[in-house]
C-alpha cells in the first residue's frame, strides 16, 4: 500500500466524489424523474392519489381512510394519528400518518378499547349483542386504513339503515356487493372500502 497523499487523492478521493455526484444525478434525479413521467403517462389516476369525485367535487382518495361521524355513513376504524405538531389526537390526519404504538399490556390500550366498545354499542343500539369485531375498536397501523372487515360493516347495517330510512336488507346487500375478495382468492384479507361503500349509499338515494 502506498498511502501517499497523491495516490490517496487519485485512487480514492476523486472516484468517491465524482461517483457520488454522478450517481446522485442518475439515481436521485433522473430515475425518479423518468418513473414520474412514465407513471403520469401510463397510470395518471393512481399516480396522483386515486382521487374520487362525486358530482364533480373532490371527496377524497379511494386509498386513504377518512374520519366519519354521521350515523348515515359507515364508519372506518379508530385512528391514532396526531395533529401536525404532534400535540393532540387528530384522527385520519393524512399528512401525519402513524399508529398508537400502545403495547399489549398498556393500561391506556385497555382503557381506550373499553371506551370504544361502550361508544360503539351506544351508537349502534340495534346491532347484535355480544363481542364486537376487533378491527372496529383497534387503531390501524397507518391511522389511514381505508377498509373495514365484512363483520365490521355488517355490524353497522342496522344504524345506517335506520338513519337513511332504508330496509336493513337493502343496506346489507349493498355491503355484500362491495366486498373486495382476496387477490387470486389467496393473498390478503377480504375487506370493504368505506368511501366506496358510502358513495354507493349516497348514489342509492338519487
Amino acid at each position: 500500500m502506498h498511502l501517499s497523499l497523491k495516490s490517496l487523492l487519485r485512487e480514492y478521493l476523486r472516484p468517491a466524489l465524482m461517483l457520488t455526484l454522478l450517481l446522485t444525478i442518475l439515481l436521485g434525479l433522473l430515475y425518479p424523474g423518468v418513473v414520474t413521467a412514465l407513471a403520469q403517462l401510463l397510470f395518471p389516476y393512481q399516480a396522483n392519489g386515486s382521487l374520487r369525485y362525486a358530482d364533480g367535487r373532490l371527496v377524497g382518495s379511494e386509498l386513504i381512510g377518512q374520519y366519519w361521524t354521521s350515523p348515515k355513513y359507515f364508519h372506518g376504524r379508530p385512528s391514532a394519528t396526531l395533529s401536525d405538531d404532534g400535540s393532540h389526537l387528530q384522527p385520519y390526519n393524512a399528512e401525519n400518518s402513524g399508529a398508537s404504538n400502545l403495547g399489549p399490556t398498556n393500561k391506556v390500550l385497555v382503557q381506550t378499547v373499553q371506551q370504544r366498545i361502550a361508544e360503539l354499542k351506544r351508537e349502534n343500539p340495534d346491532a347484535p349483542p355480544g363481542p364486537v369485531p376487533a378491527d372496529l375498536v383497534t387503531a390501524s397501523g397507518s391511522g389511514l386504513d381505508p377498509d373495514i372487515s365484512i363483520a365490521a360493516a355488517l355490524y353497522q347495517v342496522p344504524r345506517v339503515a335506520k338513519a337513511r330510512g332504508l330496509s336493513q336488507e337493502t343496506v346489507r346487500q349493498l355491503v355484500l356487493s362491495h366486498v373486495q375478495g382476496r387477490f387470486l382468492g389467496i393473498f390478503g384479507e377480504p375487506h370493504v372500502n368505506v368511501l366506496d361503500l358510502n358513495l354507493a349509499l349516497d348514489a342509492l338515494k338519487h
Binding site: R77, A99, S100, N101, A134, D135, S140, G141, I150, E189
Partner: peptide, 14 residues
C-alpha cells in the same frame, strides 16, 4: 370468513 380477527392493534384490514 367475515374478519381477520387476532391482534389488530397497529395492523391494516387488507
Amino acid at each position: 370468513a367475515l374478519q381477520p380477527g387476532g391482534n389488530m392493534e397497529g395492523k391494516e384490514v387488507r
